[in-house]
Simulated assay, not measured.
Amino acid sequence: MIPLLALSLLALWTSPAPALGGANDAEDCCLSVTQRPIPGNIVRAFRYLLIKDGCRVPAVVFTTMRGYQLCAPPDQPWVDRIIRRLTKTLAKSKRHSS
């Protein structure tokens, strides 16, 4: 699993996007995405960075248990499975904490 993570990280560096319309709040964008599935059990959170957000490469950014950020293509079935699992887990934890 470590070699997979290392390979994924090489292709997944993020850099600031250029500011649009003179705004100073540019987000970090992915320069590329991995086509290799990321193990869902190492992911704790996700967020979208899309073209409409000013990014050139649309991506889902997964945050791992160790704090790494991995960029994945939003149109892949394995990405959808991880997002559904995380959403379900989050919903369960909110119900139990209420």
Rank of each mutant, 00 (worst) to 15 (best):
A26H: 10
A72Q: 09
L10R: 07
C71F: 09
L10A: 06
A72F: 01
Y48E: 15
V60N: 00
T89E: 08
A11H: 12
I51P: 13
S97G: 05
D53E: 07
L10M: 15
F62W: 06
C71Y: 12
V57F: 05
N41W: 10
S8P: 08
W78V: 05
E27M: 15
L90F: 03
G67K: 13
A6N: 10
S93F: 05
P39R: 09
Q69C: 13
G40K: 04
P18Y: 11
P3D: 02
P37L: 14
L31V: 12
T63H: 13
Q69Y: 06
A6F: 14
L4T: 00
A59H: 15
P39V: 07
N41S: 06
A26E: 15
Y48G: 13
S97M: 10
P74A: 14
T63M: 14
C30V: 04
C29M: 14
V33E: 10
A11Q: 09
G40H: 01
A19Q: 05
L5K: 08
P16W: 05
D80F: 13
P16F: 15
R56D: 02
W13Y: 04
R66Q: 11
I42G: 00
K52I: 08
L4H: 11
I42C: 03
L86H: 03
S8K: 07
D25R: 10
A72G: 01
D28C: 00
A17Y: 09
P3N: 15
Y48L: 13
D75V: 14
N41R: 11
L49I: 08
S98P: 09
A6E: 11
M65T: 08
P3W: 06
G54L: 10
C29S: 03
T87R: 11
K88R: 05
P37H: 12
